[in-house]
Design a protein around this nucleic acid. Sequence first.
DNA 1: CGCTAACAATTAGTGCACTAACTATTGGAG
DNA 2: CTCCAATAGTTAGTGCACTAATTGTTAGCG
Lengths: 160, 160
Amino acid sequence: MTAVSNAAQLQDNDLLLEQQLCFALTVASRSVVGAYKPVLDNLGLTHPQYLVMLCLWESAPRTLRNISDALAQAPATISPLLRRLEEAGFVTRQRVDGNERSLAVGLTPAGTELRQQALAVPGTMMNRLGLTREQVGELHSSMMALIAATAEDHADAGSA
Amino acid sequence: MTAVSNAAQLQDNDLLLEQQLCFALTVASRSVVGAYKPVLDNLGLTHPQYLVMLCLWESAPRTLRNISDALAQAPATISPLLRRLEEAGFVTRQRVDGNERSLAVGLTPAGTELRQQALAVPGTMMNRLGLTREQVGELHSSMMALIAATAEDHADAGSA
DNA sequence: CGCTAACAATTAGTGCACTAACTATTGGAG
DNA sequence: CTCCAATAGTTAGTGCACTAATTGTTAGCG
């Protein structure tokens, strides 16, 4: 066997910016989030805040830890975000009774009502992006597979 | 005809976090960038800085404006990033002669040499993610299509 | 019971990303 | 030639995302 690893034969042009998946991925992420902005502005939410609200509309109250797990983000990221959502009047923050460590995050009436406006967002976004429900589904599957790939341990690196 | 728009029939569960493309996309982006971190740490670069270096390895010197266009980012994002790359000793910043407005961003010897180490990065990352070159290519195409979708003007919204 | 290790949340500090405001330069129209 | 609109870059301010350090609480082990 040569010293060449299983998947990665070195190729010319491997460093070309335009063919980096990581580049296309970050641009796509920023572009899509940017496309949400005018729509979410009407609700008074940023995109990360919108994701937190989706979380709470499914189940509330829930703890900060629970939300941070659901969004795959560090508690330190969620903490100030919840503070701003409280200031905006959409969520409540109080300690769980029986466990002074945990923070119970709930919805205010305004937060609950906001869901009615949010119901139109997914459809609006599909239209704005010109994507069919099927295309969205396929892209979603691709992203889930990619997330799974980062979560696994492909530890072959240099074991030959 | 009813008031329902062409693409977006409202469906139950459209607001479920787990089926939002925008959520999967942002998680995938953060996960992949995160997977680069240990590799890029060895080069002394963050991921956005790595993208700037890819840019410069293809062509240098070039202006800040040119780089910001290539990376699809605001000049205000690139400006401090270049300052840090200069402090790290990888790039030079000087005014273009004949045009005092433009900033010519070039490579230092250290910046040029860094490319040799960077050559291994794409292969290393493919191995770490357990992706074949074909899979990377397919995902890349999907992302480019999505970027194109955000760039177009799907202005049908409510015209019926 | 008392101590300690694990856990929940917050804070501090760095870097990105974006908008808006500002400075300086350039170049073209009158 | 002069003025003025467009351009290039920087700075200020907000919000996200991450790591590390800190505070307080809980729970379990001896």
